[in-house]
């Protein structure tokens, strides 16, 4: 907890914030003012890009929520005393942890039907939901490993203490082991969450209307090189504003847990 340790990340985060929240938007604004025809095009397309970006946020939230829930369960299953619980979880994690996100998104897109027939009603099964499932599978495999590692990192003396007090295995997990795991697994969880947020751009390749898709639409419609460049700078800035707060939030949570 020396000054040097606490100051370095502060300084670098200030620089990061400067680049992300100031430099990129500034570039967009200055360039638009120098060439007003470019600025006009950009203003026209911003709502379209924004509608795409809301899809990225939606997919991220859904995929990370689903993936975290499933991942924690799978991680605990990997540590179960019974092989018939342990083995399926281990197989699932090993297969999907080593699969590229794009492959999973393609797979879910083509494996699931475009609609589901339920009691004679046709329910649509939109592409974005399939992208959510693809990313959720990937993140659940990562989070399963994070959970497993966190549980194993708790000293065995903690288990012994719970045993001595008459806790069952599940009670020990719930009241003593898992609460201690939360803090330990926050930093790696943050990595998964932000790589999922960035991975949402891959959904453009299976036709989901998200930010990358919207930017590509816009640049083909406008057909100007400078507009294409500035559109993708906007995309970068948008992803920064999505991923950077995740990192900040996690760091703040970590500090709170450390203080506690």
């Amino acid at each position: 907890m020396s000054m040097a340790v606490t100051q370095t990340p502060k300084k670098s985060s200030r620089v990061l914030r400067y680049i992300g929240f100031v430099a990129m938007p500034l570039l967009v604004v200055v360039w638009s003012l120098i060439d007003l025809s470019l600025g006009k095009e950009l203003v026209e397309w911003i709502p379209y890009l924004a509608s795409g970006f809301s899809m990225n946020i939606l997919i991220t939230i859904c995929a990370v929520t689903l993936g975290t829930t499933a991942g924690v369960v799978l991680g605990l299953m990997q540590l179960a005393p019974f092989w018939f619980v342990r083995l399926p979880a281990q197989i699932y994690v090993q297969i999907f942890r080593n699969a590229p996100a794009l492959v999973l998104i393609f797979a879910t897109t083509y494996i699931f039907p475009f609609e589901i027939v339920m009691f004679g009603n046709y329910l649509p099964f939109p592409d974005w939901v399939k992208a959510v499932i693809g990313l959720a599978i990937l993140s659940s495999a990562y989070i399963a490993e994070i959970t497993r590692g966190a549980v194993l990192s708790i000293p065995t003396t903690q288990w012994e203490a719970t045993k001595g007090l008459g806790f069952s295995r599940l009670q020990a997990l719930r009241f003593v082991i898992l609460p201690q795991c939360v803090r330990r697994s926050l930093p790696p969880w943050m990595n998964v969450a932000s790589s999922m947020a960035m991975g949402t751009s891959l959904a453009s390749l299976v036709g989901v209307h998200e930010l990358m898709h919207a930017a590509t639409d816009a640049s083909t419609a406008v057909r100007r090189l400078d507009f294409t460049i500035i559109a993708y700078v906007v995309v970068m800035a948008a992803f920064f504003t999505l991923c950077y707060p995740i990192a900040r939030l996690t760091r703040r949570l970590e500090q709170r847990f450390n203080a506690g």
Binding site: T157, E160, A161, G164, L165, G166, F167, V176, Q180, R183
Partner: peptide, 20 residues
């Protein structure tokens, strides 16, 4: 065994308090 342990207290060398 759990039923028994509820009735028999044990204190360990390393205290093993719950740090959280």
């Amino acid at each position: 065994r759990i039923q028994l342990r509820k009735r028999v207290g044990i204190v360990f060398q390393q205290y093993n308090l719950f740090p959280h």
